[in-house]
C-alpha cells in the first residue's frame, strides 16, 4: 500500500478525512461551550458559598477550589469516565430505577470540564463581585432597589464587566482542556437509516478534534498530517474566540469612563 499524500488524505467525502475533521472541530466547540457553561454554574455556586456568611459553605467551596485546581485534569476525567456511570446508576437504583442509566460520553466529558473550570471560575466571579464599588450598591438601595432588581441591574452587569477578562482566560483554558476528553474517547453517534435503496444517513462517529486526529492517525498510520491539522484547527478556534471575547469586553465596558 502506497502512502497517500496530504491532499489525498485531506479530501472531503468518503475517501478523505477533511469532513470528519471539520465535524470533530464542531464537536470540540460544543464540548467546550457546554463545559464552560457547567463551569459557570459550578463557579457561581461556589462563589456564592464563599461570599455567604456561612463558615461551612465557605469551607466546602474552598476545599472544592483547592482540590480541583490542584489535581491534574486528566485524573478528574478518569474519575468521571470510570466512576461516573457507576455513581449515576447507583443513585438511580437508590431511587428505584432499574438497570444502567446511561451517562452519555458527552455529558461525562463536559461535566468533568465543568467541575474543573468551575474551580477557577469561582475565583474570577468572587473577585469581580468584590470589585463592584460598595457605593453603587448603597446608592441603589437608597433608590429603593432590592433583591432581584439589585442583582439584575446593578451587581450582575458589573460582575460580568469585571469578570469578563478572567472568564476569557478560562474559556481559553476550557477550549484546550476539551482535548483531554480524547484520551477517554467521547463520541456522538449517528446511525444509518435506510429506506429501500435510499441511504438517508451514514452511521457516523463524531469525535472531538484530537480524538479524530488520533483515529485517523491510527487508521492511516500517518500521524503527523492529522496532528498538525488538529493544531491548525485549534489555532483557528482560539484566535476566533479571543476576538469574540475582545468584542464582548468592549461591549461590556461601553459605559465606563476611560482614564
Amino acid at each position: 500500500m502506497q502512502a497517500k499524500s496530504f491532499l489525498e488524505l485531506m479530501q472531503w467525502g468518503p475517501q478523505g478525512w477533511l469532513d470528519e475533521m471539520m465535524f470533530a472541530t464542531g464537536l470540540t466547540l460544543a464540548v467546550a461551550i457546554v463545559g464552560f457553561l457547567f463551569g459557570l454554574l459550578f463557579g457561581t455556586l461556589a462563589a456564592i458559598a464563599k461570599l455567604s456568611g456561612s463558615r461551612l459553605a465557605k469551607r466546602l467551596a474552598d476545599a472544592y477550589t483547592t482540590v480541583f485546581r490542584g489535581v491534574p485534569d486528566l485524573l478528574v476525567i478518569y474519575l468521571f469516565y470510570f466512576g461516573g456511570s457507576a455513581v449515576v446508576t447507583a443513585i438511580g437504583q437508590f431511587f428505584g430505577a432499574q438497570g444502567f442509566i446511561g451517562l452519555p460520553g458527552f455529558l461525562i466529558g463536559t461535566l468533568a470540564i465543568g467541575i474543573v473550570s468551575g474551580a477557577y471560575q469561582s475565583e474570577v466571579i468572587r473577585g469581580a463581585y468584590l470589585a463592584v464599588p460598595p457605593g453603587e450598591v448603597e446608592a441603589a438601595r437608597a433608590f429603593g432597589m432590592s433583591g432581584r432588581a439589585l442583582l439584575w441591574r446593578i451587581i450582575g452587569p458589573q460582575v460580568l464587566r469585571y469578570g469578563l477578562p478572567g472568564m476569557g482566560n478560562i474559556w481559553q483554558l476550557v477550549l484546550k482542556e476539551s482535548a483531554l476528553v480524547a484520551v477517554v474517547g467521547l463520541s456522538v453517534y449517528l446511525y444509518e437509516v435506510r429506506l429501500g435503496d435510499l441511504v438517508l444517513i451514514y452511521e457516523t462517529r463524531f469525535s472531538d478534534l484530537l480524538r479524530q486526529a488520533h483515529v485517523a492517525a491510527g487508521s492511516t498510520r500517518q500521524p503527523f498530517v492529522f496532528y498538525i491539522t488538529a493544531v491548525a484547527f485549534y489555532l483557528v478556534l482560539t484566535t476566533a474566540s479571543t476576538w469574540c471575547f475582545r468584542r464582548a469586553e468592549t461591549w461590556a465596558t461601553r459605559g465606563m469612563r476611560r482614564v
Binding site: K176, S178, V183, L210, A217, P223, A230, Y234, L235, T238
Partner: peptide, 23 residues
C-alpha cells in the same frame, strides 16, 4: 507564543511524539 498558547498541550505532545516519529 501564539502557537504554543493557542493549542492544547496534549496535541503538542502527540505531534512531537507520534507525529515526528513518522520522520
Amino acid at each position: 507564543v501564539f502557537v504554543f498558547r493557542g493549542t492544547p498541550l496534549l496535541v503538542q505532545i502527540f505531534l512531537i511524539y507520534y507525529g515526528l516519529g513518522q520522520f
